[in-house]
Amino acid sequence: MDMLLNQYYLQIAVFVMVNAILGVSIYLTLSTGQLSLGNAGFMSIGAYTCAILTVKAGFPVYLAIPIGGIAASLMSIIIGFPALRLTGIYLAIATLGFGEVVRVIVLNLKITNGALGISGIPTLGTKISKMLSSFGLPQKFGGLSVQQTSTLLVLLILVLILVFLVFFCVRLNRSRVGRAFAAIKADESAAEAMGINTTYYKLLAFALGALIAGIAGGLSAHLTFFIGPKDFAYHRTVEILLYAVLGGSDLVFGPIVGALILTLLPELLRSASNYRLMIYGALLVTMMAFRPQGLISEETVRFWKSKLGRGSK
């Protein structure tokens, strides 16, 4: 147990959670069959808005993170209106371009401090540990140091956010909106012929994805002390895309599993880090060739369900 509560593992678990939240964000955009390569851009809008609010304007973190998400979401609506007229590849390229433009703007603005980034961001962990010690909590609490307790609490908050998002997505799937998403994904022109306002629903999915990416950005800013433009470059977009490609984008659990695997794997394979990106690249190609629906699809779930169900009886 002591080993499991090692700060190192806790920190990795925290990153797994943030990446899983990013996985949910790409899942939402993909649920209408849109490929957005701008998630890193939205993430950076969320992260910077949030960091500037807390560091420079003194906003409390719990307010700043949702505001960051909303800022990313608003931005996505502005560029989404014209961009969503574009389909498929065009949208992917337009959002990729958007991400690049955001990066260059962040590099040039004074308030974002250019390439130097924003450092000294108060982390959730330190905030919580300060709170804990102000409550008069002793240095050791149930065998845990204050640092461990606060990281555990941060983890708990992230898990709650993720559970909420998953719950939201599962509910969404069974709502009118979710069915419209699925219809658009299956065949956009058929959906339109049926009277579904495809632009509205596509924009909605796009904005929701951006909102969650923005929140993930805000969270990550408050977990790493420092953000810079390099954190949100093209490679980050590819990583987020990989979560969905590996895990599968049929179900919300797909990208989450993808994020889990792809965050843990590099830590386990530290010695092979030279070849990590090569493995990622090969993984993308193989997945597309052999299992384009990802590891977890509705069929997999059905298969395992029937198998496990039979086994337990």
Partner: peptide
């Protein structure tokens, strides 16, 4: 180089 923190 404006995308390198150190150079800036």
């Amino acid at each position: 180089s404006n995308n390198n923190d150190w150079a800036v």
